[in-house]
Design a protein around this nucleic acid. Structure first.
Ligand SMILES: Nc1ncnc2c1ncn2[C@@H]1O[C@H](COP(=O)(O)OP(=O)(O)OP(=O)(O)O)[C@@H](O)[C@H]1O
Length: 716
DNA sequence: GCCCGTTACGTTTTT
DNA sequence: CGTAACGGGC
């Protein structure tokens, strides 16, 4: 294999295939590239079967990318190699053997919203005041424990205060509830895999023998449970290679622990340590800025990072008046850079919090610029999508009470809280699930009519369960939407809201279709689909189309762009106000800044708004502490004068488009629209320029329009 | 049992 | 500002 493209240290890391190896190096020094080549080297030069290789990445997208890169390097078959995130790997392991520790093999994976509702349920049953003890705190407590592999029993033994005891009790109830439902949260995926390995050594040794060469990328962001898992797996062959950068550890809130790096050298005293000091990504000015910023962290080992990519342009700093202007200014810089030859796909806008994307999006839309927003997670949170997925969960595993409760009365069937309570209680007495309790509805004091409704639902679920055996996911979705009356409910509603829900369900079917194309019909199909949905966020959205990428700094880890815009450099926003109290958290924020700066290859544009609106309140801001840490000579401020004129002229222009100023609309008015035809007003909301009309048009159905601006005329 | 209005509250960050 | 839990009226 040709390694001439690699420097001496990189080569050393690639060919050191036997024994423990740790590569610790700064941003853009080629760590991920080393991993990819090392895997290719194992397959091609060492003739290791792909079956014996494991590589852990941080995101599913990174996993996919790494496999593609390896495929490009060599002709050997890579399909039996496991490249995935910790969580995806654990799902695969648990799917085979989780029944050995008492869970159903068709377990479901809970998202945060599901977790919260379980906690709320538990708190209610224990009569704990939700106002005094926010559910969120219990969830954090539970997650922290699981990340540290502390079981319910251990947590209970550890209690010293009343609060501790309360927390531990809730942890107990929560875990019991999950167990009963064969439901796992994200942290369970890791913790239960370890439990499985500990209780069933045969399972462990199967994987120990299988994974003879183990790789972990982004090692600085592993938590204790993940550390333990890797250690267990590597025990047999000790061929373990981890790569990372302690300056890029940004997931402490999720339990990430930098001391895992120190642990590694402790655990494997013979570990070879490789340092990479050449950055191949960024221009010198950008790297200087990043290095200077990170030097302000006191709790770190200094390290060298240099580049030979040339000095590059100065970093541009934009001081906008408000976030609106910040957006428009960024867009105009994008257009300018595009003229200079940079493609939109080579540009990214990074921000601290998802909420900041709104202002940028608005500006992009206004200028009809192509963009792609990563994350945000909004789509899968929508009620209709969650409802549909709950139906799918029930079809897969009818004993999943959490999903059952969600759909038992959706669409409305006249099954209320009272009935659900009766069913829940009966399920407890029987020691089974709501599904089983439903079968006995006639005998437990549920009114005849309601019991009949339950019987209908039961048979619907059973029929769907049969159908699921020979159907693709898309076909099953169609059956569910039809048989349960869900689609009919939305069609009947015929409101703006319901129309958009139907559209979302259609959109969801493009996801299922894609899945169906890649997967054969089998007993695992539905399970695989649902766990994919839980595991794969829409981070996969990053595509090759020529458009600007928008994402949080966290999501940008490991990526690179020719042009990076880092927005919202204000104290309280970045660094976040919640992190400014302690030095420790401040240092993590600074690492986040380091990650953001080092994503850029050629151009870096920073920005800030002097006025920012949060929760509808507008406040003056202070320039970010981190901005002050960048040496003045690396920065260049762009002139503010042009902007003032632009925004001034725009304001006047909008006025002239007014169509219906002074015309008053009310519910029941008939109107006509040049494109949509005749319609009836069903709702009037707001006033002035923001007055909105909901209109049902005969030809095209419901629409929401702005009263003053829509080209509509009143009919009499 | 259902619907709608009121209020309270929150935003880091994600597998 | 936007969402989501709760309570009152039907
Ligand atoms: N020896 C090399 N010669 C040329 N280019 C290289 C070399 N090594 C790495 N690169 C390039 O440098 C860039 C950064 O590499 P890579 O993403 O592997 O770094 P990294 O250390 O994983 O970065 P980060 O810590 O930011 O995730 C990539 O574009 C890669 O192709």
């Amino acid at each position: 294999m040709d390694l001439s493209m690699m420097n001496k240290e990189q080569k050393e890391a690639i060919v050191t295939t036997e024994g423990p190896l740790i590569v610790m190096a700064g941003a853009g020094s080629g760590k991920t590239r080393v991993l990819t080549h090392r895997i290719a080297y194992l397959l091609e030069e060492k003739d290791i079967p792909s079956y014996n290789i494991l590589a852990i990445t941080f995101t599913n997208k990174a996993a996919k990318e790494m496999r593609e890169r390896v495929d490009m390097l060599i002709k050997e078959d890579t399909s039996h190699m496991w490249i995935s995130t910790f969580h995806a790997m654990c799902v695969r392991i648990l799917r085979r053997d989780i029944d050995k520790i008492g869970y159903d093999r068709s377990f479901s994976i809970l998202d945060t919203t599901d977790q919260l509702s379980v906690v709320r349920d538990v708190l209610k049953k224990r009569n704990i005041d939700v106002k005094r003890y926010p559910p969120r705190q219990f969830l954090n407590y539970i997650s922290n424990n699981k990340n540290e592999l502390i079981t319910v029993k251990e947590a209970r033994d550890l209690t010293t205060t009343y609060i501790d005891e309360l927390m531990a009790n809730v942890y107990h109830d929560y875990q019991e509830m999950l167990f009963k439902n064969s439901a796992l949260d994200f942290d369970d995926l890791i913790m239960l895999t370890i439990e499985l390995f500990e209780k069933h050594k045969d399972v462990l040794s199967y994987y120990q023998n299988k994974f003879q060469y183990i790789h972990v990328d982004e090692y600085q962001d592993t938590n204790h449970a993940q550390y333990k898992l890797v250690k267990m797996l590597a025990e047999q062959f000790r061929n373990i290679c981890v790569v990372g950068d302690s300056d890029q550890s940004i997931y402490k809130f999720r339990g990430a622990d930098i001391s895992n790096i120190l642990n590694f050298e402790e655990d494997y005293k013979d570990a070879k340590v490789v340092m990479l000091e050449e950055n191949y990504r960024s221009r010198e000015i950008i790297l200087d800025a990043a290095n200077k910023v990170i030097e302000n962290n006191t709790e770190r080992k200094p390290k060298i990072l240099r580049t030979s990519r040339g000095r590059g342009e100065k970093i541009m700093m934009i001081n906008a008046d408000n976030e609106r202007e910040e957006g428009t200014e960024i867009v105009s810089q994008m257009q300018k850079l595009n003229q200079e030859g940079f493609k939109y796909r080579d540009m990214a806008v990074l921000y601290r919090a998802n909420s900041q994307s709104r202002a940028i999006e608005d500006a992009l839309v206004k200028s009809s610029m192509p963009y792609n927003m990563v994350g945000g997670m909004k789509f899968y949170q929508r009620a209709e999508i969650k409802d549909l997925m709950s139906y799918m969960k029930v079809v897969l595993n009818p004993f999943d009470d959490i999903a059952m409760v969600r759909i038992i009365n959706t669409p409305k069937r006249g099954i209320g809280v009272k009935t659900i309570e009766t069913l829940e209680n009966h399920a407890v007495t029987l020691g089974t699930s709501i599904y089983d309790a439903m079968k006995e509805a006639d005998f437990i004091g549920i009114p005849k009519g309601t019991a009949n409704k339950l019987a209908v639902l039961l048979s619907t679920i059973d029929k769907l369960k049969d159908k699921a055996k020979y159907m693709s996911v898309t076909e099953l979705v169609d059956e569910i939407l039809h048989d349960t009356g869900y689609l009919e409910m939305l069609i009947r509603e015929n409101t703006l809201e319901s129309t958009s829900r139907i559209e979302n369900l259609e959109e969801f079917k493009t996801v299922t279709k894609e899945f169906d194309e890649a997967n054969e019909i089998s007993d695992d199909l539905l399970f695989d689909f649902l766990s994919d949905m839980a595991l794969v966020s829409d981070q996969d959205n990053i595509d090759s189309e020529d458009r600007v990428t928008l994402m949080t700094i966290h999501a940008s880890k490991g990526l690179e762009f020719k042009v990076v815009f880092l927005v919202g450099l204000e104290d309280g926003l970045f660094p976040s106000s919640r992190s400014m109290d302690t030095d420790e958290e401040m240092e993590e924020e600074r690492r986040l800044m380091y990650v953001a700066l080092t994503r850029a290859e050629d151009r870096l544009i920073l920005s800030r708004a002097k006025l920012r609106t949060i929760y509808g309140r507008t406040n003056y801001t202070q320039e970010s502490t981190f901005l002050k840490e960048i040496p003045e000579e690396l920065l260049e401020y762009n002139s503010p004068f042009k902007r003032e004129m632009k925004s001034g002229s725009k304001r006047r222009a909008t006025r002239t488009y007014t169509n219906n100023e002074g015309v008053s609309f009310k519910v029941g008015d008939k109107v006509t629209h040049p494109k949509f035809g005749d319609g009836l007003i069903t709702q009037v909301k707001g006033s002035g320029d923001s007055e909105e009309l909901d209109i049902i048009f005969q030809a095209v159905g419901p629409k929401r329009l702005l009263a003053n601006f829509a080209p509509i005329k009143k009919k009499d």
